[in-house]
Design a protein around this nucleic acid. Structure first.
Length: 824
RNA sequence: GCCGAAGUGGCGGAAUGGUAGACGCGACGGUCUCAAAAACCGUUGGGGGCAACCCUGUGCCGGUUCGACUCCGGCCUUCGGCACCA
């Protein structure tokens, strides 16, 4: 399969070397992690994979560089825990069951077995004694246990929420099963339907989750995304009087962050799903409103929130009273208002809200300015004035106040009158954990006709998934039809009861798995508290940026709940976070449907695991991802060949000492050590490898010309191998042995550098005239500013541009060997 | 649409506000060979010049600065997320 440009053969047999050392490391258990090791701990974690079937190059891209970092930390003297496991529950297993008649358990187990072999071929430091598999009862029973704890604390509750409903299948669809608003199987229009579902009350921790002071190093962009996702806003919940409508409710609550604009309310808008809509709609408006509500059920939330889409809505025929002004305002329903945010109703202030403005324009509703923009001439506004600097007008007794002052005064007034209260709302909603599926953790709740909803007693856990489930192509959860699972007895009265058939979101599994790794065999608790304390929070977490919000936020929430249960001392699960990019193929995301998935296996068997690892790390900065290139990997194979040659060449005829290139070689070596170590610290593997390539580019000619002495050469080889060992563990181990060193290179400390030896002796002074480089002068390192200026201004090339002009300024940049001359 | 990123040679990319293009791939020329592959040596952003050199160039438009790939404002394009894929 060698392509024309591939090295015809490697100097070594990569498959044999991979096999030899993987077996040896395994036998010697050199990656076994000892809890009692006295060295400082380092918990390095890569997001565990979903067992989709085959390990593809994207998995390698996530795991090889993080393994290199874990190895790097080992060589720095840490006791490193870098475990692996499988995120084994999920929709694909169930789809395989429906489509191909394979049981999800069998499908998942087969996939994991294949992936274990592939993972081992990477040569990572994984301690397989610590593997976790979330679909096993020994794991998921603790999901159930956490659920019960949350239930006790009021953090797990049941409420109605909309789901994607396919009327033909009579089932709930996952978002990915909905294509353009239609069911992927039947093509029917999907509607949103209310169902009773289980939630975790993540909003109870919203404020704490906004606080990132407990993390040491997280990308700013992730913190920003989470902050925006949580979307805290302070405002006022104010009620409008509807006591004359003849319904039970006396008022409609709305939430606003701009209570200063309350005198500008010219309408109210209810979300189409708002329970009041049906009740307040008047007879002659009913048909139109019902049609509109029906239509809104078919629109996706993303569409509804689009600021580009034309705002639509219908008048319900009902009116509410604005208690501040005593005015009657029409009540509309419109799909730009969501039931899930605030109270599901908003006060329409078109003059001061862009969406309300657009809506009012379209439906001819009054646009009344109540916060006058500075220098406002009293004319109608061309667009909503959103500014916070204006003065109250048409606002009754608040007129003339600045609107910041008006805000406070109006809010106080409303609170005093009992018309509303100051409130904080969040864009983030509680975490809906219910899934109407089989392949997940059963929710440990049952329903008794006499006693009502009951939690399953702790000593009856786990609630096991029945193995003999039937998978029908309707997509309905098999648990619903499984009598053996469904029917049980009530722990209170002993009478007949039925089990909850919803299972949990798989994000529940991944919200605490990092704690399970510290004691995977623990049977009496989710984890051993002492060991959890020992390993503490994850020191370095790495994974895809697609998890920027949901998984990471859920894990932060869960850890805080676990802390409040008294099981761990910390609330922040991941101290440092790094998000790698995505590997592309032909500039496109890899997917089975595109047929562009790159399998690492063929490259591994031909070129060895190390070359694949190196190429992935060399491709570009890790956070940037990159395009897989068949040609590109050859460069790394070629370079490994070169390293092999350099390390195995005879050195008998090198000078015993005083090689003419010794000084340069030593300097280059120290520079390389410095660069590689500081680069790996920041996950800059691409530049770390460039630095090593520059070193080998210099080593080749020195060896050829016999200008380097034997001890300097040996020292350089030694450093090179040690620096490369975290990235290319197999070949470096082999070369370490062949160069006469004791097993194992992976138990060695990293080499150290000496800044004095790395220092340059001669520098290039760059001289700019009006910002353009006009000369480069070789000068001794550490040249004084005065000497640099003198040399620069004395340069003939420079004088060609300065003679006859007035020199107005000369800038010397310390430490940069740069003089910038400014002339008129 | 909203939130968050990213745009640099033929390609992947490098560059604390200070020499743009390190390192690698590819291409071209050469050495070796009967020949090819591999390996090794050299050239390689664009334009001009016999040459020394000069001009130009980091998605687009503008700004700050002695100096901008880097900072600021406005666009364009691509990518990640948007709550039942994980």
């Amino acid at each position: 399969m060698a392509t024309s440009s591939r090295p015809s053969r490697l100097r070594y047999d990569p498959a044999a070397i991979d096999r030899k050392w993987q077996r040896r490391w395994d036998e010697d258990r050199i990656y076994h992690v000892d809890d009692d090791d006295p060295r400082p701990k380092w918990y390095a974690l890569t997001m565990y994979p979903y067992p989709s079937g085959d390990l593809h190059i994207g998995h390698w891209y996530a795991m090889a560089p993080s393994d290199a970092h874990a190895r790097f930390m080992r060589m720095r003297g840490y006791n490193v825990l870098h475990p692996i496991g499988f995120d084994a529950f999920g929709l694909p297993a169930e789809n395989a069951a429906i489509k191909r008649g394979i049981h999800p358990y069998a499908w998942t187990m087969d996939n994991m077995e294949r992936m274990r072999g592939q993972l081992r071929s990477m040569g990572c430091v994984y301690d397989w004694d610590r593997e976790i598999v979330t679909c096993l009862p020994s794991y998921y029973r603790w999901n159930q246990w956490f659920f019960l704890k949350m239930y006790e604390k009021g953090l797990a509750y049941r409420a109605a929420a909309p789901v994607n409903w396919c009327p033909t299948c009579q089932t709930v669809l996952a978002n990915e099963q909905v294509i353009d608003g239609r069911c992927e199987r039947t093509g029917d229009t999907v509607i949103r339907r209310e169902m009773e579902q289980w939630f975790f009350k993540i909003t109870a921790y919203a404020d704490e989750l906004l606080d990132f002071s407990g993390v040491l190093d997280w990308p700013e962009r992730i913190k920003t995304m989470q902050t925006n996702w949580i979307g805290r806003s302070e405002g006022v919940e104010i009620s409008f009087d509807i006591s004359d409508l003849g319904v039970d409710e006396r008022e409609i609550a709305t939430f606003t962050t701009r209570i200063d604009t309350v005198f500008g309310v010219t309408f109210l808008v209810l979300a189409p799903e708002h329970p009041l809509v049906a009740r307040i709609t008047t007879g002659e408006r009913r048909a139109e409103v019902e049609a509109y509500v029906q239509q809104a059920r078919e629109a996706s939330e993303i569409d509804r929130l689009s600021t580009e889409r034309e705002k639509t809505g219908v008048f319900t025929g009902a009116y509410a009273i604005n208690r501040l002004s005593g005015e009657r305002v029409p009540i509309w329903t419109a799909d730009y208002v969501l039931l899930t945010y605030g109270t599901g109703a908003v006060m329409g202030v078109p003059a001061h809200d862009a969406r309300d403005f657009e809506f009012a324009q379209r439906y001819g509703l009054e646009i009344r300015v109540v916060v006058a923009p500075p220098e406002w001439d009293g004319e109608p506004l061309p667009e909503a004035y959103l500014g916070r600097t204006g003065s109250q007008v048409s606002s009754g007794r608040f007129d003339g106040m600045g609107n910041a002052e008006g805000y406070e005064a109006i809010a106080d007034h409303i609170v005093e009158q009992g018309w509303g209260e100051r409130k904080v709302t969040y864009r983030m909603r509680d975490w809906l954990i219910s899934r109407q599926r089989y392949w997940g953790t059963p929710i440990p709740i049952l329903y008794c006709d006499d006693c009502g909803m009951q939690p399953v007693p702790e000593d009856q856990l786990p609630v096991l998934l029945p193995e003999d489930a039937e998978f029908k192509p309707t997509g309905e959860s098999p648990l619903k039809q499984h009598a053996g699972f469904l029917n049980t007895t009530c722990p209170q009265c002993g009478g007949a009861a039925t089990r909850e058939t919803d299972t949990m979101d798989t994000f529940v599994d991944s919200s605490w798995y990092f704690l399970r790794y510290v004691s995977v065999d623990e049977g009496d608790a989710p984890f051993d508290a002492e060991k959890a304390k020992l390993w503490g929070p994850v020191d370095q977490y790495t994974g895809g940026a697609e998890h920027a919000v949901m998984h990471l936020l859920y894990a932060r929430f869960f850890t805080r709940v676990i802390r409040d249960l008294g099981l761990v001392g910390h609330g922040e699960p991941f101290l440092r976070l790094f998000n790698q990019g995505t590997v592309l193929s032909d500039h496109m995301k890899m997917s089975k449907s595109r047929g562009n998935v790159v399998s690492p296996d063929v490259y591994v068997s031909e070129l060895g695991a190390d070359v694949v690892r190196l190429y992935l790390m060399f491709m570009g900065p890790w956070e940037g991802g990159g395009d897989w290139s068949d040609a590109g990997i050859n460069g790394l194979a070629r370079w490994m060949n070169r390293v092999w040659d350099l390390c195995t060449s005879p050195t008998d005829d090198l000078p015993a000492d005083d090689g003419p290139a010794d000084r340069d070689m030593t300097r280059r070596m120290h520079q390389t050590i410095r660069r590689v170590i500081t680069d790996i610290e920041r996950f800059k593997y691409n530049t770390a490898l460039s630095a090593m390539m520059e070193l080998t580019n210099e080593m080749g000619p020195a060896l050829e010309a016999r200008t380097v002495s034997r001890p300097v050469w040996a020292g350089t080889i030694r450093s090179l191998l040690l620096l490369l060992a975290p990235m290319a563990p197999h070949v470096t181990e082999e070369l370490w042995e062949r160069t006469g060193n004791p097993y194992s290179i992976h138990a060695q400390p990293l080499p150290e550098w000496d800044d004095a030896l790395a220092a340059i002796e001669e520098a290039t002074l760059v001289v700019q005239v009006n910002g353009k480089v006009r000369d480069r002068i070789a000068v001794p390192a550490g040249i004084s500013e005065a000497d640099a200026r003198e040399q620069a201004l004395g340069s003939e090339r420079v004088r060609a541009y300065t003679d006859g002009h007035e020199v107005t300024k000369v800038v010397f940049v310390p430490g940069r060997y740069l003089v910038s001359v400014v002339v008129k």
